[in-house]
Design a protein around this nucleic acid. Structure first.
Lengths: 205, 205, 205, 205
DNA sequence: AATGAATGAGCCTTCATTCAT
DNA sequence: CATGAATGAAGGCTCATTCAT
């Protein structure tokens, strides 16, 4: 966990960003590219232009670095979902937005997402629990939306809501292994396709 | 790759199975449980009850072990899909079967699937290519099925077939991170739910 | 070595004692409990409730802390012995007092004694010399007492006086590894037993 | 703990002695000279002319090395005491021999003894327990000898036997901090002096 | 076909100390 | 007086792989 925050000037570009931020950002890139285990602390600090000692001043361990990355993503996604869910729009619109948005934000943070999928099991059991708990909360909020529609008859009710949630988030989490920036479709286009497919799958028969 | 085969198991239990098979099977369990990097060759040979020398007699490297596991799964799944696709059943039935079957076989080999998802990027680039090529072939066969339906008007045509394939296989590959044996739903039930959702999503509007 | 002294404690508890004293006292406890090398400067300053900078303000190094502890104990013990030796009491009484007193004061400062025994060799060679010199002076004063008795015929003369001194101080220095406060015998009782044993061992045959 | 033993030829001198033995012997010298914490594994393996990997092949940790040294000494001393104690000689002679012998063997293995005194507390708590237990057994056997004499009236009974044991072993354990080979007195001479002093201290008043 | 001792490179982490503020 | 970020050097340990037997 971050032991300190800094208030260094952030004008001038990456190289002058606060040390912890720089560490986090380079660690993210490297973890995504080579995997957590294959990335050495040495590589991280070299990329960030600091020394090992500096890293251990801010983060308790290599694990902590990973955990911070997770926590940041989870926080951001949860916040966003919260906003969409609690809006005034009709149910179908709220679900469509939530679905499309989570795709877009996943693509925008493809590295974090990749790490998430590949390295979670390398965290200490304790931290894994914390991460899973947060994730579960996220899924549950999404599920609530679906259940709401099942009760009102807007969505088919012959499939358990949690199976649908896992069905959809599987697709989302998998984006990292095939989506490439600069391809034919933009993040939003993928998001809309996915949202359409989800809503179509949910239409009552 | 296996350099040799051994005399048949002398009937009895796992313990007497051929050495390469025993190594592969224990490696699979350990990789799934702890990840490829976190599993040492020592652990594998101890679990399999052989020595390091023996392992290096049959497999060229730790990497090879992983590759063998992949190859086995890919071969099995490809064969199965081939069978379904080339049957005489109507298109919708063939797609439904293919979808449901891949879910069931993924669940039946959950460990292999988990390893697949988590450790592929730890293979040498060369072997990754081989694996990816095989996987692509698999996806393509599946895509063909969908395109067939889009051309005939049975399936909606406003979504690119490959987006649909990725959408669906995301769900499948993700099974390993939530499905637990002994839960409320059987492998086949999940398979049928997933197949239904896919087909519903494909209905023309 | 202490570079400065601070304003008197503002009355209250330990927490308000002068910073150097607090550092010394916590360092003593930690060194005795975990050994010099196993105790980090960080732990010491945390225990004392100050920062590293503060410690390095008062002490030149971690070594200095250890040296100060030694110096303090040595000074105290030497002073006390001096007092006893130069009293007017008969020789046997002076020796008995000196022996018993050194046991009691060793037990009273068990932590310091433990550190003394375990960590002396971790000091810089230079400081070790200073410590050893002081210790030798202490032993010599004790030895003089014994030689005096050997010359007068009160003590057996068939054993070198310095062997006797080492024999006795071995017992004393070893107290730290078995004596536990709250045991059956008080510090003074042990002191008297030890003194009795020493005097008995010295009786002419 | 030693994971394996070797049966290499031992002709030719130290350099060709079995690897574990060579490691143990150099570790002993270094620990005695610089202390456990100040000695790096690197130094040990360099002195022994092997690589780190080799060391970790035979010993689980640096701790293990220390433990093996202890165990070896304890075993040897216990055996020797056993022999003396159970002889047919008169009590005073048995005690005299035991006392003198333990001094001689301590001096003969001065390095081991030094390590013993300085580094025991750096072992894992678990191993410390094992060592202490063995030590206690050793002391108890010695104490039995004294109690026997107290009951028969040969030795003074006004001092607890265990205080006497600690008094004497303090002297013995302390040998390492003052005895220097090549000094005026041989190991046996010191042993006899110590034994005499002990027996004199035990004479009934 | 199999053993297991040995290698050698690399990894995560700790820590006393310095220094700008 | 005091802070705490940063350094830089070690340190203990792991591990895939090789090789003589």
């Amino acid at each position: 966990m971050t032991r300190a925050t800094t208030r260094k000037a952030e004008a001038g570009g990456e190289d002058q960003a606060a040390v912890p931020r720089r560490l986090l950002s380079h660690a993210t890139k490297l973890f995504a590219k080579k995997g957590f285990d294959r990335t050495s602390v040495q590589e991280i600090v070299e990329a960030a232009g600091v020394t090992k000692g500096a890293m251990y001043h801010y983060f308790g361990s290599k694990d902590d670095l990973l955990y911070e990355i997770y926590a940041r993503v989870l926080r951001a996604q949860t916040e966003q979902l919260e906003k969409v869910v609690s809006s005034e729009a009709p149910l179908r619109e709220r679900l469509r937005s939530a679905a499309s948005d989570v795709v877009v934000s996943t693509i925008d943070n493809l590295d974090d997402n990749t790490i998430f999928m590949q390295s979670m099991h390398q965290l200490s059991v304790e931290k894994q629990k914390a991460v899973r708990a947060e994730r579960r909360k996220y899924h549950e909020r999404f599920r609530t939306l679906i259940e709401e529609g099942q009760e009102s008859g807007e969505f088919r009710a012959d499939k358990p809501a949690d199976v649908i949630v896992d069905f959809f988030f599987g697709s989302v989490h998998h984006l990292g292994s095939w989506y490439r920036r600069g391809g034919a479709l933009s993040a939003r286009q993928i998001g809309d396709h996915f949202a359409d497919l989800l809503l179509a799958a949910l239409r009552p028969e």
